[in-house]
Amino acid sequence: NGTVVMHGENEIYSNIIDPPSVAAVIQAVRGQAALDAGLVLCGRRTAYVERADERFANAVAPYYRAVQVVDDLAQVEDEIIKMAVNVGTGAVQAMAAALQVPLQVVISGSHWVDAMNHGVHKGLALAALQDKLGISADETAVFGDYPNDLEMIKAATYSFAMANAHPVVAEAANFTAPSNLEHGVLQVLGAYLDGRTRL
């Protein structure tokens, strides 16, 4: 969500959350057992979780390449760049409201709420990458499906909303890609790289 940008193995940009704010989110999530809430601490080294049950593990697996299960998230020694809360069906609004913390709280999916420093978003991350690579909005393609993608969508001429995107993303994007359930990003990029279509 714009908290860290890598180019190959090199870090271009990161935005670290202060430890008291991390502790506040951990405490807030622990108080939401009724929402089936589980927290992922996204560190610079890896992602950390306390829960290891099947439902939560299956929810986390598609989004994190490496996950370390720990006994106590409050004891993690890493710089935290984002915190992601997974909740049960229909609970994202309640979870977002429950996170009364000094951070930016955004709904990032039908079961996910993210917390990060204020002013951080994917558009900021994209701008850092564009600057590093010396490319313009006219040389940039992005794909999004949820409102946390809006700033990124606005920073690229070739902005694609997935076919199953949130309505505000579909309205903001310049183009539409097939659903992410149909690997729409790969379809669009594959057609472009194979010369079957032009952006």
Results as ranks from 00 to 15, higher is better:
152 M>V: 01
127 A>V: 15
131 D>C: 14
116 M>E: 09
160 F>R: 08
111 H>T: 15
143 F>M: 08
165 A>T: 01
127 A>G: 15
100 Q>H: 15
127 A>F: 12
121 H>S: 12
110 S>Y: 13
167 P>E: 04
166 H>E: 02
169 V>E: 05
176 T>S: 14
150 L>M: 07
170 A>H: 02
119 G>M: 03
172 A>Q: 09
116 M>Q: 07
109 G>I: 12
104 Q>R: 12
174 N>E: 15
134 G>F: 01
99 L>F: 15
144 G>C: 05
156 A>D: 02
133 L>G: 02
109 G>K: 14
125 A>R: 06
117 N>P: 01
140 T>V: 05
170 A>E: 06
166 H>N: 02
110 S>R: 15
158 Y>V: 04
137 A>P: 00
147 P>Y: 01
118 H>Y: 04
105 V>Q: 13
171 E>W: 00
153 I>P: 09
179 S>M: 04
118 H>A: 06
132 K>I: 11
167 P>V: 00
125 A>H: 06
123 G>C: 05
156 A>E: 02
142 V>W: 03
175 F>V: 07
151 E>F: 07
156 A>C: 07
124 L>C: 06
127 A>E: 15
154 K>F: 10
155 A>C: 11
148 N>I: 05
124 L>F: 07
124 L>T: 11
102 P>W: 06
137 A>Q: 13
101 V>F: 09
109 G>Y: 14
162 M>A: 12
137 A>R: 10
103 L>P: 06
142 V>Q: 03
151 E>P: 08
145 D>A: 09
173 A>Y: 12
121 H>F: 03
139 E>W: 00
152 M>D: 03
145 D>P: 10
112 W>K: 11
158 Y>W: 12
136 S>L: 06
162 M>Y: 08
109 G>M: 12
114 D>M: 12
152 M>R: 02
100 Q>T: 15
159 S>F: 09
99 L>K: 14
